[in-house]
Amino acid sequence: MNRLRLTKDEKKAIPFILPGLLVTALLIVYPLYYIVSMSFSENAISRSGFAGMDNYFSLFRNPMFGAAIENTVVWTIGTVVPAFLIGFILALLIEKKGLKMKGVFRSLIFVAWIIPGVVKATAWKWLFTTDGGMINHILMSLGIIRTEIPWLTSPNFAMLSIIIVQVWACAPYVMLMMTAGLQQLSTDLYESAELDGAGWFKKLRYITVPLLKDVSFICILMLLVWAINEFSLIFIMTSGGQDTTTLSLLVYNQFEVLNINSASASAVMQLIITMIFAVLYVKFVIKEDE
């Protein structure tokens, strides 16, 4: 068979798929090629002069890069772990047998998830504010703190503040995913386990957790990718102050100050890190599909 000859199916597929592929090539593949070639150029803007790895080496030598990596690690672990645990526990509680108002709780939490990110960030900026903000007021009236904390501008609290917001924003997603996963588990398994006298912990340990392994991995990988890619929340709440400059903020800041060589090299670094988790994610989704 001629390798170049199109099969009947391929001839039919072409008019459907070609326009989409061209757009994808122009809007995704070409920009990725573009940023990589920028990062290897002496003059990144005009993409001229081959610089080898120079842009990368000077990025690695820059203390800002080390700090950004450190911030990204703190931010990522600090958001993914609590968001997953809280979302998972809420899902277990909401799927408890015989619970009424399940739908109401789920809808309420769903609403919180779909609010535009900019609105979430702005709302929390207002909650965290120092001139009469709600959070300072609550903590002071409970006697936990004596004076207002400048949450978003203080080096000690800025990272903690944005982590709280991201956990608040992502836990509902985990809850929705896990309830979807829990509903697929067969009730027969639980019934026969109950007949054998298994308590709730044993059921959790031997049925729920193992069977939810895949959906948990998908959830965690998604949270990881979101954390590494997050830009608007951090940018809006802290304007990318030094203590909250994650990798994506570093890319933007370097671009803003027209340090394009450094911006393109750090963008490629971010791309590589994200893609490691994205590839793992895709592997799990395919496994689920089959």
Binding site: I17, L21, T24, I28, Y30, P31, L32, Y34, I35, M38, I45, V225, I228, N229, F231, S248, V251, Y252, F255, I260, A263, S264, A267, V268, Q270, L271, T274, M275, F277, A278, V279, Y281, V282, V285, I286
Partner: peptide, 24 residues
Amino acid sequence: GLSLFMLISQMLPLTVLMIPMYYM
């Protein structure tokens, strides 16, 4: 391969796309 590319493209960092998009 192409359909997996479509899935993975949904996870591209926007801060990476934004620079080449700006120049293009």
